[in-house]
Every structure is written in C-alpha cells, then in structure tokens.
C-alpha cells in the first residue's frame, strides 16, 4: 500500500507544481507561458491587462525581442507594425524586451511575418505567442 501511495503522491505534487508555474501568479502578477521549445515566456499580467483594457475581438501577438535596448532604435518597430491596417495597437516594453501587437480578429497571423518585421528593424524576435480576446 505504501509503495502504491508514494508514486501517486509524487505525481500529484508534480501536477500541482506544474500548474502553478503555468497559471497566473497573483503575488508577482506574472503569467508564465510554456513555449513549444520548452522555454518559458513571462508575461506581466498588469501590463497585459492595461494593454487589452479597451480592446475586444482582437488577436494579441506577444513577442520576445532581443536587442531592443534603446527607445530611439525601437521606433521603427512601432512604425512598421502600424503600416499594417489590421494592427489596432502596439506596445513596446523595453524593460521586459517584449512587444504586444493587437490585430483585428480577421487577420490571419503569420509568425514568420512578425519575426521578419523585427529583423528588418535590426532586432531579433525569439518567440511569439498568439492570444485571442
């Protein structure tokens, strides 16, 4: 009986621990998203909530960016996204190295297209998450 219960206990602990890292963490207001490649993307829930406050029926692209260390250098990202008429809102977070892009729901989002926008601006998009509102 003891030998049967111990593995079950370990399994249960793992499930609880795993779900706590994937779900909203109310202490630091961070949402951790598990990516396909095994890496984690931390989303600041407060900033995300402020971004989506006035939005509805949109798709949000959350992009992790490398090399976005300077405001002056990141201006092109915002300008290039706004050239796309389906983009409703863009938010650049230099501190977190993240860009949030809200597309109208009719937009078929192409992750490679998003990554290319960063490439032509001289930065590197390492991960893109799509969420629907």
């Amino acid at each position: 009986m003891y030998k049967l219960l111990l593995p079950l206990l370990i399994l249960q602990t793992n499930i609880l621990f795993a779900s706590s890292t994937h779900d909203h963490d109310s202490d630091n207001h961070a949402y951790m998203h598990k990516n396909i490649d095994g890496s984690n993307t931390v989303i600041d829930q407060n900033k995300y909530n402020i971004f989506v406050k006035d939005l509805s029926n949109v798709k949000i692209a959350i992009v992790d960016v490398k090399g976005m260390v300077c405001d002056f250098c990141a201006r092109g990202i915002e300008k290039t996204f706004y050239d796309d008429k389906s983009v409703e809102k863009v938010n650049v977070d230099l501190g977190a190295g993240k860009v949030l892009v809200a597309y109208s729901n009719t937009k078929k989002i192409d992750v490679d297209e998003i990554k290319n926008i960063f490439l032509i601006n001289g930065q590197t998009a390492t991960n893109v998450i799509i969420k629907e509102l």
Binding site: K66, G67, V69, C70, C73, G97, G122, T124
Partner: peptide, 9 residues
C-alpha cells in the same frame, strides 16, 4: 556585424 542579446546590442 550586429549581436542582439536580451540586455544588449
């Protein structure tokens, strides 16, 4: 040459 990292360029 350009090297982008999370914290530098």
């Amino acid at each position: 040459d350009r090297k982008n990292t999370k914290l530098s360029q």
